[in-house]
């Protein structure tokens, strides 16, 4: 009975998703009169969003349309997303076990793992920086770079080189907050120059986006690592193979 109900609900959800996908506006090409777009969002349905983005790409400060949308045209969404990530990590830190900080055990890592850490962690930091920089003109950006940075942190944690960071000290808190804070300060700062919230001046847009993305990378990396490190590592002894 329950299974039938769940199956029906799943089918209903799949049907709704398919319907929503079907309703998406296609790319029907750019209308000849660009002025009509300025009348508002309704026009976007008719013009097709990719064409709309392409038409305004030179005002965004970056050359990659996805980054332009995420960090400029729809920056408000990204700002709130970082807020959500921050709230998530606050939740994890709030419900953590109040365990004493664990000592660091570099000797726990075997020779193979130690070699992997020595090779991979610097490479990961390098690739994170590259992805951050590449985001301006090709796929990449703060989120991906932050994830790679977090990968380095997780690797360090797994090899026992990173303490549990509990309770979070001042610098960790500051790092977690940095991206959101810089984003918010810039978002509000541009309003002093007579612009709308988050409407960067066209000349400085590239620099502002880079500043936001750099701080976001650091914060996202720290947030993702904190999600992983928030839990204490399991006891080393005992336990069964899962088979």
């Amino acid at each position: 009975m329950t299974r039938t109900l769940i199956a029906l609900l799943c089918l209903g959800l799949a049907g709704m998703l398919g319907w929503a996908l079907w309703q998406l506006p296609g790319d029907v090409g750019l209308k000849s009169d660009l002025q009509s777009e300025l009348q508002g969002q309704v026009q976007a349905d008719i013009v097709g969003l990719p064409a709309l983005v392409a038409a305004h790409l030179d005002q965004s400060g970056v050359r990659h349309p996805v980054t332009a949308v995420l960090l400029n045209f729809r920056a408000y969404d990204t700002l709130l997303e970082i807020g959500v990530l921050l709230l998530a990590v606050l939740g994890v830190l709030a419900v953590r076990h109040a365990a004493a900080p664990e000592p660091v055990h570099p000797q726990r890592a075997g020779a193979v793992l130690a070699a992997l850490v020595h090779l991979a962690v610097p490479l990961m930091v390098l690739v994170a920086g590259y992805l951050l920089w590449a985001g301006a003109h090709q796929p990449g950006g703060a989120f991906q770079a932050g994830a790679v940075l977090a990968g380095a942190g997780v690797l360090l944690r797994l090899s026992g080189r990173l303490p549990a960071l509990l309770p979070p000290g001042f610098w960790l808190r500051a790092g977690l907050l940095l991206g959101f804070a810089v984003f918010l300060v810039i978002a509000l700062g541009v309003t002093r120059g007579g612009h709308e919230l988050l409407a960067y001046p066209v000349q400085q847009a590239g620099g502002l986006i880079l500043a936001i993305e750099a701080s976001l990378t650091l914060s996202i990396g720290l947030i993702l690592v904190s999600l992983f490190v928030g839990a204490p590592s399991p006891p080393e002894h005992g336990g069964e193979a899962s088979e």
Binding site: P139, F143, Q144, V148, G151, V154, F228, A231
Partner: peptide, 24 residues
Amino acid sequence: DLALAEAAIGAGLTGALLLDAVGH
């Protein structure tokens, strides 16, 4: 772009997180 995010999050971090949870 999505492939890059999926590669970074899906293949790397989520895997480590979930395996850690299984270990717990």
